[in-house]
Amino acid sequence: MIEGVWLWLAFVLMSMTTVGTRGSFILLGEKGRLPPVLQRALRYAPAAALSALVVPDLLLDGNEVSLLNPKLAAGLVVIGVAWRWRNPWLPFIAGMAVLLAMRKGLGW
C-alpha cells in the first residue's frame, strides 16, 4: 500500500495524465494533428488496458492460473448479465452475489 506524501504525489501524477491527455489538442489549438496511424492504434489502448487489469484478477489464484475459482465464476456471470440486460446496477449485484455465495455459502 502506498501511503502519505507518496500517495498524494501519485494522485498529482495521475492528475497530470488526465489533463495532459484530455487537453493535448485542446491546448495546442489548431497547430496540432495526430498522425492517422497512431490515432488508429490508440483506439485499442482502453480495451487492452482494462482487460490487462481484469483478466489476471479473474484467472489467478495467488500467482497460479486457476480455472476453478469463485472470482472467475462471478466474472462469467457479470459478462452474461451485462450482455443480456442494460441495467447499470445488475452486474454489480449479480457478481457480488455469486462471489459471496461461493465464498461464504460454499466456503470456497
Partner: peptide
C-alpha cells in the same frame, strides 16, 4: 494508458 483515449477525443 487508461486515459489515452482522451488524446483521440481531444484531437
Amino acid at each position: 494508458a487508461l486515459n489515452l483515449r482522451f488524446v483521440i477525443f481531444s484531437a
